[in-house]
Design a protein around this nucleic acid. Structure first.
Lengths: 274, 274
DNA sequence: ATAATAGTGTCTTTTAGACAGTATCTA
DNA sequence: TAGATACTGTCTAAAAGACACTATTAT
């Protein structure tokens, strides 16, 4: 891993040696976006990752992101990066997730990263050229294994999660330590961001309507139910779920085809809005 | 307001003119702590505020906080500042709340602020000298009025909250705009941090045990109930509440005096821990 | 002694959970 | 036509909500 060279012919070690951060002791600030959507047949969540082409973490997969301009808020920076990364950004949910601040999280220099979570409908990513390759990865999170998979390109990233309790004399914190168990890896602490985002989504789906950001304008009841099932990781009862969700919907009085594989035509609905 | 001078004899305008931020375009990063405790008789929440003695926001009240060192995480910085501000920090709950990043939030220079929420038992603040005066303020949040009050010093800070929906073509966000309706004011965007923290507390108390951080080691059932009532802003039914909370407690087999004014002796309990 | 609070018991309403049955659609 | 899915209805279990009552304690 340490022998891989970048386009300037430098190894990671050499790269780090020649890298000069500003003399003045202020951290750089970045934003990263955990961009999520549902797969075409609503089988699972997907995350957009970009392959790094330079040190550090060369060839590893990373969340979309970039530096925060000196005159823009992190929210504006996230919107801008989102636009640049995905092109279309209408009907996109964007929420601040967590600020990552471990001093060693970036070997080049001190970087504080404000992570955002983004929910959208699946859309084609900008064509991958040599400089930048971005792909949607299928997410699965079961039995403390986080797996990210792209079948077309046969890429598999897998993390094993261990619950751990931190005590530092002031506060006790429960978190996760993680280790990759495949060749392909995520860059920086982006594994933690993904995990944190999935937990946030799981919590928030129960007392908010953010799930509709993952669905098209018009959808069927089985479609919504499937989205909830994927995010919560368990099956729900049709009759109970429908009765509850209907108060948030308006019927379109059309029968449309469900997105689910093998699904039948079903009544079309739209989200009523809050 | 613009005429008040600092210890160097400068007005805000003069101060800002002579202030030189680093030439290099990186933001400074700070942490601020929303330090909360319950009042002695469990009547309301209190927040620790510190009066600023220099521009900007001279004489305004601010959350405890400070700059993040280049080699420490924001969490470590928060712990350090907490220690410096309050002395004792055992049994303190500390959780990241939100990152404030409006480019104009500090008129001196670009500052990104990572806000933390802290729950502790009431404790005497370090004696206020001329350079630094810190006080506990009683919090009340009713009918979209946020009021912070210190009766000994006769200080009253009051904010009127207006719900507002931001639309920027990418995402819709519902937030609060706020305006002070008293002479005393909060510094920077600390009003937003306080509001955000109170909402977080209200949400989280329902599915976690963080409320016990606001109580002493041993307490009575009416004490816990009162803490929940203050945070949720509504009365609870004694019998239902007690039945639910008891699974988290261990009886100490003592009768102790309740903290509540006019309260009777009642059975003592301790938090079982998770 | 009085008034207020601590603690217990009981009832109603609502929600969550579970399953069965019919109608309808896909293949 | 066969097999699956959409939709509705019914039933049970658990939780939330609401009072009433007795015992105890502060003043």
């Amino acid at each position: 891993m340490g022998e891989i060279r970048n386009k300037d012919g430098l190894t990671e070690e050499e790269f780090l040696k020649q890298y000069k951060p500003s003399k003045y002791e202020r951290p750089s600030v970045t934003v990263d976006m955990l961009i999520l959507c549902m797969s075409r047949y609503l089988d699972n969540l997907k995350v957009l990752l970009i392959q790094r082409k330079n040190h550090p973490y060369i060839n590893c997969w990373a969340l979309a992101g970039g530096f925060v301009g000196i005159h823009e808020s992190t929210y504006d920076a996230a919107c801008r990066e989102l636009q640049e990364e995905t092109g279309l950004v209408t009907n996109t949910y964007l929420e601040q997730l967590y600020t990552m601040s471990n001093p060693d999280r970036d070997p080049r220099m001190r970087v504080i990263d404000v992570a955002y979570i983004t929910l959208m409908r699946e859309q084609p990513v900008l064509a991958g050229d040599d400089a930048k390759k971005s792909l949607w990865f299928d997410i699965s999170l079961h039995d403390d294994i986080l797996e990210l998979k792209n079948e077309e390109e046969n890429i598999n990233i897998k993390y094993c999660l261990h619950k751990k309790i931190f005590k530092n004399g002031v506060v006790d914190t429960t978190g996760y330590t993680q280790e990759s168990i495949t060749d392909e890896k995520l860059a920086f602490d982006h594994n933690e961001i993904i995990l944190e985002g999935l937990l946030r989504l799981k919590n928030k789906i129960l007392y908010s309507d953010i799930a509709f950001n993952l669905l098209p304008e018009e959808f069927t009841l089985p479609d919504v139910k499937r989205v909830y099932e994927v995010i919560l990781g368990k099956e729900l009862y049709k009759s109970n779920f429908n009765a509850n969700i209907k108060s948030k919907l308006i019927s379109t009085d059309c029968k449309i085809t469900s997105m689910i594989k093998g699904g039948k035509k079903a009544a079309g609905y739209k989200y009523k809005g809050q």
